[in-house]
Design a protein around this nucleic acid. Sequence first.
DNA 1: CGGGGAACGGATCATTGATCCGGTCCCCGA
DNA 2: TCGGGGACCGGATCAATGATCCGTTCCCCG
Lengths: 242, 242
Amino acid sequence: MGTKHSGSPGDVWLRPPARAAREAPPLSRDRIVAEAIALLDEEGADRLTMRRLAERLGTGSTTLYWHVKTKNDVLDLALDAIFAAVEIPRADGQDWRAGITALISGWRAVLLDHPWSAALLGRPMLGPNVLARSEFLYATLLDAGVTEPHLTAAAYGLSNYVIGSALMQATWTAGEGQATRAAAQERFRADRDRYPVLAAHGPLASDSDWDTSFALGLSWLLDGVHATVEEASSRGRGSSGK
Amino acid sequence: MGTKHSGSPGDVWLRPPARAAREAPPLSRDRIVAEAIALLDEEGADRLTMRRLAERLGTGSTTLYWHVKTKNDVLDLALDAIFAAVEIPRADGQDWRAGITALISGWRAVLLDHPWSAALLGRPMLGPNVLARSEFLYATLLDAGVTEPHLTAAAYGLSNYVIGSALMQATWTAGEGQATRAAAQERFRADRDRYPVLAAHGPLASDSDWDTSFALGLSWLLDGVHATVEEASSRGRGSSGK
DNA sequence: CGGGGAACGGATCATTGATCCGGTCCCCGA
DNA sequence: TCGGGGACCGGATCAATGATCCGTTCCCCG
């Protein structure tokens, strides 16, 4: 007896000097989220498990639950964290259109940089980064003279458009989406008589196609918003009512 | 020995007359999908498990794998199946705008009728129902005189817009989304100084708000598409090129 | 009527999210 | 200086789930 206690992990002399293991910062919620993002970027959404994440952090899987309540928390935190990279244009009173375009484009870029995020869009986004950018969007529109119900419609329309676009592109572009697209093209050709138009104008091929399509749709939306402002102001001046 | 063979399920006399169990149709892929949709509608996406699905069908869970390769297959099939409810307007050459509006609105209605579908939008949709409706969309736009690159941009823009809108609304409307929205409103009020505009123009409240916002954004997109056609045709007539 | 493929399901496995509970580390006050 | 307690960690373990193995039953066709 004495050689083998119940919980002692080996002989004293073999244990590290009790401080070596502390070289790394003591695991924080931030480190967990950062590592989760790295893991998601490298391996995709379905490869993220608490065990794997813990392993990459050099800790036990159960330790994570001290800093985070559930796996969903990790996902929510990761999702909000990536939006920190979206620069918020400074409000300049003029040229609201440029500001909004920049914001929305940045939003899209982030979603495409982290394709796993698209699959997570179906959850409430209430993190500080997302809210700050929504606030900017609303404020800018309001400042531009957009009034209800156009204000809400514009904010939601723009958000929904980016989300949908990123979701679609991530689906067909990321990971095995590439292979799927090839198979789809093949299928269109096979069912050429059933889907003649689709067979001719197949799925988007190059990145630039995605980009120009996105830009066009965005400009249409912004034109629409612009028109409501024009109409309101001209009516305000008392000229043409309709 | 003799009373208890290895695999025989009880005494012969206790077994049903070997035909009673066959009153129900013999389990087909279609029945599985239909039941899956019912289950999803009633209990949501995360409650769908192969076991529970099998139980509702009165079969063993492993039997499902004879008709379907994976659970993902079930989801893909269910997702495509619900779009059968979207009526395809008959092509009438005139008034392409009405046709597209009808299609897109029907699309949205289906997504909202089955809120679980929103979470599944991040996968390739290549089922026959989806393809047929995409074909109609492309064909109608083409017929209306929309040309590349506006054609692709219009088709994708419209699709993305519906998808994003439905995803967003389902997130905040379905199930616990309601509760979340209340909490969100609360939070805006608390952080009033950080999110002044959001606090004032809170999340959408009534269904009609969602509807009108959606309709407005859709009309802006269609206006944009319409403008490209106008411009092309006027340029064709050789009048004002700009 | 008998063979064979279609259809079925019990037992079982690996993975994963989450919890229990006991151990370790470190700061802070007496 | 010392000891108590809270922050932090992780091995063992549980329940749920997707999926497979393999033996059994059903039923059509020659």
